[in-house]
Amino acid sequence: MSVRTLLGHLWRLHRLPLAVLAAGAALFEWALTRVAPDPAQASFVSELLRLLPQPVLRIFGDEIAANLSSRGFLGLGYRHPFLLLMLSVWVVRVASGALAGEIGRGTMDLIGARPVARSRQVAAALGALLAGLTVVAAAAWLGTAVGLVGRSTLGVAAGDYLPVIAGCWLLFAAFSGVGLAVSAGARDAGSAIAWTSGFIAFSFVLEYLARLWDRIGSLRPLSLFTYYQPQGILRNGLAPGDGLVLAAVGAVALAAALAVFQRRDL
């Protein structure tokens, strides 16, 4: 009962930003279907880019050939900073606001003084996070699906992107766990926002640099973005190992959030 009440509370606090984020994600993915190269264009450009020097090819990643197909181009949209930003904003906003935000605002006294177990507060925050992630991710996929309706010449099926968006959802579910763990120990939303967004940004940059720079290549597994590679998913499906790592990180972070929040002073 209290989880449902708290979910309703979080819904009222975050529904407008959720609508904006979902609309942004959907429009972006839809727009990519409008500008995606058709197979003939993609083939020509792909042949041209293969002439580039090896280091330049590495900057574009080892999936360059795949990226330049219509299918791969749309896959890029699922790793594009814009979509990642939409999902990050949701995770940072809700994770920081649900626990640390209530404490910093002073409203946690009103919730904490009522018959609501602290574990239920964490559960409600997690529920809101995952539900919102599902909405934004589904909106992004729907943007692709709707856009593809009018571009049958691309020869791409929207269903191909379901495993990709599932991987993306898993990645941000893991970040949600981390965000909750940070929020559970923070004194206010500001510090929780700084730490969580810092963690996501660092993870993104680490994976990007480790891919380019051999000397730090061994650090790549430390970034959660390593376990979400849309082109790989398009080629081979969602790797169980990657999914497992993301799920495990999310679960461990959630356990930490529960442990910290149960013991702390509010």
Binding site: M1, T5, R12, L13, R105, T107, D109, I111, A113, P115
Partner: peptide
């Protein structure tokens, strides 16, 4: 519980605030 320095959710109406807190009180 009446906190010494009670803070509320600024965008909620007074009625919404009371409903939410009563609902948590069960």
């Amino acid at each position: 519980y009446l906190p010494g320095d009670a803070r509320f959710w600024p965008r909620f109406s007074g009625e919404r605030t009371l409903d939410f807190l009563a609902s948590l009180q069960r």
